[in-house]
Nucleic acid binder design. Structure first.
Length: 835
RNA sequence: CCCCCCAUAGCCCAACCGGCAGAGGCAGCCGACUUAAAAUCGGCACAGUCUGGGUUCGAAUCCCAGUGGGGGGACCA
């Protein structure tokens, strides 16, 4: 080491010094059995291997790592694994574009990301690494599918599905954005009727919704809100309407069974089976009109359909329904404002009290009957909706409603349900916005669905699950397969792979579809406990010992999809008896985005900050400190607002403090400078709470403050040999190791200790050093600060008040006015109110 | 249209249960060191908390209304 290197901070030299040492020590490998320490499972959402790591990864993995390192410092065994979410469309599309094997492309990217992670140095347990595209992993994906299939939770149905015309595959509802475009390709999604595999997530809708309550305070409020909206439970009643000339009754869902007497017509979705059936028995003109209308609505894009301002359209279906409560005969219409896949695809229309129904009634001159007397604040009845064009949806007293008359809305809803149940024509019911999870994809780079379809006359239409002993169903080589999107799965063309003859000589064809990659990521956290185990998906004993995940960290872009699916699969595995917990993620941290000049970074905008170049230029520590210090982790970071050089400057200052310490390691701190010791112990006392509340930026600020104070003590106070200086430097190294592991390790070595500071337990704050012997109390007169009193910490309320009254400045402020009230809050304030 | 979150120095952000608006940083200015610059060190200055009401002895903090920004849902019966 040259003289120069010894006293100037060189991040490259420090990285080069410690990386090999850590790789030798493997300090973050934790056996499943752990030790006798308590356990924490800290997980970052695993990355997708599209190219190298980017700044978003840098941020996410920084925060996860701070928490993992924190809990280690607090005396826990911490499991902090890493893997790759390596199946999926982007890899496949990129592979098509470059004419390479998706497998090669994917694993090359993984290798690159691993190399970047090595330098960035999150405290991963590398012995547990997994890739979802390994047969050793997706075998268990198939196992999971078969478990779901056995339980009736995986099923096939023909339905209108979201079709991405660019990627040429179906999409889950969750993958279609609000504007009707695909979240992946950006193409306008169209509807296609196809037979597809689904997971029955709607069976779990109530639990998925209700169990969110227990996560309150541990998950971001925003994510809870989004999940609740997504599940979208409505409570009300199912009412059965008879349709003249039809055997079976038609159920409709309503949140307002109290308004049944106001139902003056029925509307069915044009693309529903019921509409088609009713049209068959309608008059020829009505049938023709309906056909035209149906064609018209199906031409509409999702975007047009979602435009709420457009006028109501519809056709009369030439049928009448009977209102079960009053026997009234009401016309049945078809209109696209009723959705086929929500509720029962049919509604009872109450135009007086529902705006959509009113708009429709006014358009087609259907009757409007007020059954709830809704009043405004002055007690005046609101105007008749037919005239005003405004439906009255609020609370009020029921009228024109037979037995419900005189009841208020809530009572009337309850009573209406009772009436329906007594008569057997309805019941209380709930319905959800959430739909079953469509999991089949017509693409190559995913987990093959382990199902065989009958391929000869004798077994045509039959389905058979692949036996557990035959798993995994491996993906065939991509060589010779046309991976280009063409609307059917590339695997179907792999005839040799797809054709199967069983022991009895019967011919079968493999299901050609692959699973949505969200299946892969819905349970990966369980696999980390036994990523090499080829006898089971996961080890229930180990999983129950470590799980659920104590701290999950990742992007808010997964607020619905990934988190909802993981919660669902966790509940299923709980119900199957594998898990003793029902929620996978006890606490969740969502980091914000890294922006540049207020905009999302992208190559096309030319505002990309490259992770690799930042890492090379400033080093891992400066980058991590910058990200942690930029602000609250859940806020977006604008790279234009931060200074990586500033972080580097701070690290150099901290590092020099350690180098200046002149006392020996192991020296007794007790005799050290009291002021500095107090400062150090205040930091030690505050840091845990700050970290646990994700206030990383505040902890970094406190470390800067501690470095500044220590610098002053060395240069102008106690001096470099004072034990308090060593105590402070050691505390800085230990806490700084969460953010800047290399620098902290080097400081630790300079302070005469052996690696690694990452496994060092935090020194305890000494309560005796935290008590102040003097306090400053503020005296306010009529809310204005008039004096500051320095008083002993043991001061009583009466003494403080006396001192305040004795103050000259206070007396001047009071003058000759009378004191109305004196409030004393030791040790903060004396507040004097004048009359 | 409905729901949720946010607003503090030029900028990024702190401020516990309502109790002195400032912990830290960036940018700025002055000075020390230097032949000079960089780095480093020392110092300085900067807001009364988006607006308007209310509660309180006391409000950045609680309540109401609004403005601006962000997010979610939305023809969901």
């Amino acid at each position: 080491m040259t003289e120069q290197a010894a006293d100037s901070y060189d991040f490259q030299a420090i990285q080069d010094r410690w990386l090999p040492v850590w790789e030798e020590l493997k300090p973050f490998e934790v056996p499943n059995a752990g030790s006798d320490k308590p356990k924490k499972y800290v997980l970052d959402m695993f990355p997708y291997p599209s190219g190298d790591l980017h700044m978003g990864h840098a941020e996410a993995f920084c925060f996860g790592d701070v928490l993992a390192r924190y809990w280690r410092g607090r005396g826990y065994d911490v499991l902090h694994p890493i893997g790759w979410d390596s199946f999926g469309l982007p890899a496949e599309n990129a592979a098509i574009k470059r004419g390479v094997d998706p497998r090669e492309w994917t694993y090359a990217n993984i290798a690159q990301q691993k190399a970047s992670f090595r330098i960035y140095a999150p405290s991963f347990d590398w012995s547990r690494v997994l890739h979802t595209s390994d047969p050793e992993y997706y075998k268990w994906n198939q196992w999971l599918f078969l478990k779901m299939y056995e339980k009736g939770l995986a099923y096939r149905k023909a339905s209108w599905v979201n079709w991405d015309p660019v990627d040429q595959t179906v999409l889950a509802n969750e993958q279609v954005l609000a504007d009707g475009t695909s979240e992946r390709s950006g193409a306008v999604v169209v509807k296609k009727k196809l037979t597809q595999w689904y997971f029955r997530i709607t069976d779990y809708a109530d639990r998925l919704l209700d169990d969110l309550d227990a996560l309150e305070g541990h998950w971001p409020a925003k994510v809870l809100n989004m999940q609740r909206n997504w599940i979208g439970r409505s409570t009300g009643a199912e009412v059965e309407f008879e349709i003249e000339g039809r055997e079976a009754k038609v159920p409709v869902f309503t949140t307002r069974p109290d308004t049944l007497y106001g139902a003056t017509f029925m509307v069915v979705a044009p693309d529903s089976d019921l509409a088609a059936e009713l049209a068959v028995s309608a008059s020829p003109e009505a049938r023709m009109q309906f056909q035209e209308y149906l064609t018209e609505t199906q031409r509409q894009s999702e975007i047009d359909r979602q435009n709420a301002d457009r006028p109501k359209t519809g056709v009369f279906l030439d049928h009448f329904a009977i209102n079960p409560v009053n026997g009234e005969r009401i016309p049945v219409w078809a209109s696209d404002y009723v959705l086929a896949d929500y509720g029962h695809g049919a509604i009872m229309a109450v135009p007086a009290h529902d705006q959509r129904d009113l708009d429709f009634a006014r358009e087609f001159e259907l009757p409007v009957r007020v059954v709830v007397d809704v009043r405004d604040e002055t007690g005046e009845s609101l105007p008749d909706p037919l005239e005003s064009g405004v439906a009255t949806a609020g609370d009020g007293v029921l009228v024109n409603s037979g037995p419900l008359d005189g009841l208020r809305k809530a009572e009337a809803i309850a009573r209406a349900i009772e009436v329906l149940e007594e008569r057997g024509t309805g019941r209380a019911a709930k319905t959800y916005r959430l739909r079953d999870w469509l999991i089949s994809r017509q693409r190559y780079w995913g987990t093959p669905i382990p199902i065989l379809h009958g391929a000869e006359e004798g077994n045509a239409g039959e389905m058979r699950a692949v036996g557990a002993s035959e798993l995994p169903v491996r993906l065939p080589a991509s060589e010779g397969l046309d991976l280009k999107p063409k609307g059917s799965s590339p695997l179907g063309a792999a005839t040799e792979w797809a054709s199967v003859t069983d022991a009895a000589g019967t011919a079968w064809t493999r299901d050609p579809d692959t699973m949505d990659t969200f299946v892969d990521s819905s349970w990966y956290y369980l696999r980390f406990l036994s990523s090499q185990d080829d006898t089971q998906a996961f080890d229930p004993t180990a999983v129950n010992a470590w799980g659920p995940i104590d701290q999950y960290a990742g992007g808010v872009e997964h607020a619905i999809l990934h988190l909802l699916y993981s919660r669902f699969i966790t509940k299923v595995l709980h119900d199957l008896g594998y898990l003793d917990f029902e929620e996978p993620f006890s606490a969740l941290l969502n980091q914000g985005m890294v922006l540049q000049d207020g905009a999302k970074m992208s190559k096309s905008k030319g505002n990309l900050v490259e992770f690799a170049s930042e890492l090379g230029e400033h080093g891992a520590d400066a980058l991590r400190v910058t990200l942690a210090f930029a602000g609250p982790p859940e806020d977006d970071i604008d790279w234009a607002d931060v200074s990586v050089q500033g972080s580097a400057k701070f690290l150099a200052r901290a590092w020099r403090v350690a180098g200046d310490v002149a006392s020996e390691a192991g020296v007794d701190f007790a005799g050290g400078d009291a002021t500095l010791r107090k400062h150090t112990h205040q930091l030690l006392a505050d840091a845990p709470g700050l970290i646990e509340h994700y206030k990383f930026n505040v902890v970094v600020a406190r470390l800067m403050d501690q470095v500044n104070v220590t610098r002053k003590a060395i240069d102008a106070g106690a001096g470099a040999a004072d034990p308090a200086v060593r105590e402070s430097a050691e505390a800085i190294a230990v806490i700084l190791s969460l953010f800047a592991p290399y620098t902290a390790e080097d400081m630790w070595a300079k302070l005469g200790h052996r690696p690694t500071v990452a496994l060092e337990e935090w020194p305890a704050a000494d309560p005796a050093l935290l008590v102040e012997d003097e306090v400053t109390m503020v005296v306010q007169v009529n809310g204005k600060v008039r004096d500051r009193l320095t008083l002993p910490a043991s001061v009583t309320e009466a003494e403080a008040e006396a001192a305040a009254r004795a103050s000259e400045a206070v007396q001047r402020a009071i003058g000759d006015r009378e004191i109305a009230n004196v409030i004393v809050r030791v040790p903060k304030i004396v507040s004097i109110a004048l009359r």
